[in-house]
Design a protein around this nucleic acid. Sequence first.
DNA 1: CCACCCTGCTTGCAATTGCAAACACGATGG
DNA 2: CCATCGTGTTTGCAATTGCAAGCAGGGTGG
Lengths: 162, 162
Amino acid sequence: MALPKVGSIGEYIREQRQQAKISLRQLAAAAGVSNPYLSQIERGLRKPSAEILNQIAKGLRISSQALYVQAGLIEDREPPSDVLTAIQADTHLTERQRQVLIDIYESFRKERHAEDEQTSQNARPRRGSQTDDEPLPEEYLAALEPYAATSGNDVTQETKEG
Amino acid sequence: MALPKVGSIGEYIREQRQQAKISLRQLAAAAGVSNPYLSQIERGLRKPSAEILNQIAKGLRISSQALYVQAGLIEDREPPSDVLTAIQADTHLTERQRQVLIDIYESFRKERHAEDEQTSQNARPRRGSQTDDEPLPEEYLAALEPYAATSGNDVTQETKEG
DNA sequence: CCACCCTGCTTGCAATTGCAAACACGATGG
DNA sequence: CCATCGTGTTTGCAATTGCAAGCAGGGTGG
């Protein structure tokens, strides 16, 4: 027994940690666990208890549920779009904002799902289920305006990596 | 030494079990744990791991999440916004996508209400890492521009060390 | 060069989980 | 009356968690 499939949870944690750009020790401290233990967890050598998992989630500032799902401790019954439901239920958003968010979210989902197609085409797969009557790109920018004043910087090429 | 706060989880399980009108041994069998252990759990003498908890939840046919919340292993979701929680819990998103969505959502919120309570981020590597500090402005554009294309996985700044 | 600080990893060891076996106590009934 | 089945509980014990120390090695600089 020991460590057959537990790997994914550890990998997931390590991914999240590295994306957050913090060291193992930092996360360990933030989560209140020892560094060696966290190391072992990340490499799938140990199966952390729920408490530890929860603390790690806090340290990473991610949802505990996401971690539990990764760990297989919760049925993945929040599948297609808990997000969509939440967005639609959010009364703080204007209708337009809502549409934009939904649109973006769906496109993100598509992005991930279509990991086979390496097309260099173009076109906007915008297929939102919204009452579409005008493009919204500038909506995005408008939303980002108060955020990022810097502009004119897009280098994004392919470099697809899995 | 005691497991002061864990009491509720055991009581909760016992309640649920009795409501289901099944014996301790029956639930133990259904959950795949030993009867004595379940007994101890119910009385708060033992702190079950997430796995066991999950199995018990299955045996009781109740939501794992409900149990985890009872056990204090999941934050009692008090969401300033359910959307954020949903986004964070969505395992289908890449971390980058998650960040973008969150930031956009927050900027939307700010547009309407200029109140903020934000991210007290800490734990920033001081040495031997990048000095980058701001979020990811152009990331938004990168993410939105193609609207649905494989977003770059490469961070522009990584090693600033010469 | 060695000292220092950072990174992650390996090594024993105390404390804990989780279990099999056996215990207590009550019904049912031969 | 003693056997048998039912409930939940107590008692050791193997296996595991989780940690304090210590190890290996990359940078920086005195």
